[in-house]
């Protein structure tokens, strides 16, 4: 199925773009909270797209079920871990970067 191949390639490319952007944001953004914005979202979106892209290429249902379980797991735990981290950092008084301040 050439159509599935193309769709899968598009999904994989989009997912890859997202995860690389997330990593670049992790390095470029000025403080912890903005970085967690960059990674939290692109992580879930990128992982989801890449796993869906793989799912379209699998032939056995065992592999498909496993991919779906990984997908479900990453999508559920990703935002949870993000929130817990942000919450813990806030409680510890990690300062919020404002426009014009030096990056840290």
């Amino acid at each position: 199925m050439i159509l599935l191949e193309i769709l899968s390639a598009v999904l994989l490319a989009a997912g890859t773009l997202f995860i690389v952007s997330g990593a670049v944001g992790l390095l470029r953004f000025p403080d912890f909270y903005t970085r967690i914005h960059a990674t939290g979202i692109t992580d879930s979106a990128g992982a989801g797209l890449i796993l869906l892209g793989l799912l379209l290429r699998t032939t056995t249902w065992e592999a498909g079920v496993r991919l779906l379980i990984i997908l479900l797991f990453l999508v559920v735990t990703g935002p949870t871990a993000t929130h817990l981290l942000a919450h813990a950092a806030r409680r510890d008084g990690v300062p919020v970067w404002r426009k014009g301040h030096p990056r840290r």
């Binding site: 773009l17 997202f18 952007s21 997330g22 670049v24 944001g25 470029r28 953004f29 000025p30 403080d31 909270y33 903005t34 914005h37 960059a38 979202i41 692109t42 879930s44 979106a45 990128g46 989801g48 919020v96 970067w97 404002r98 426009k99």
Partner: peptide, 24 residues
């Protein structure tokens, strides 16, 4: 929403001068 969100963040990341003005 997640996809829109990811695109928004991606644009910020690759823009030469990210326009960030965080508020709590």
């Amino acid at each position: 929403e997640v996809l829109v969100s990811a695109v928004t963040v991606t644009r910020q990341v690759w823009s030469p001068r990210p326009n960030l003005d965080p508020v709590v």
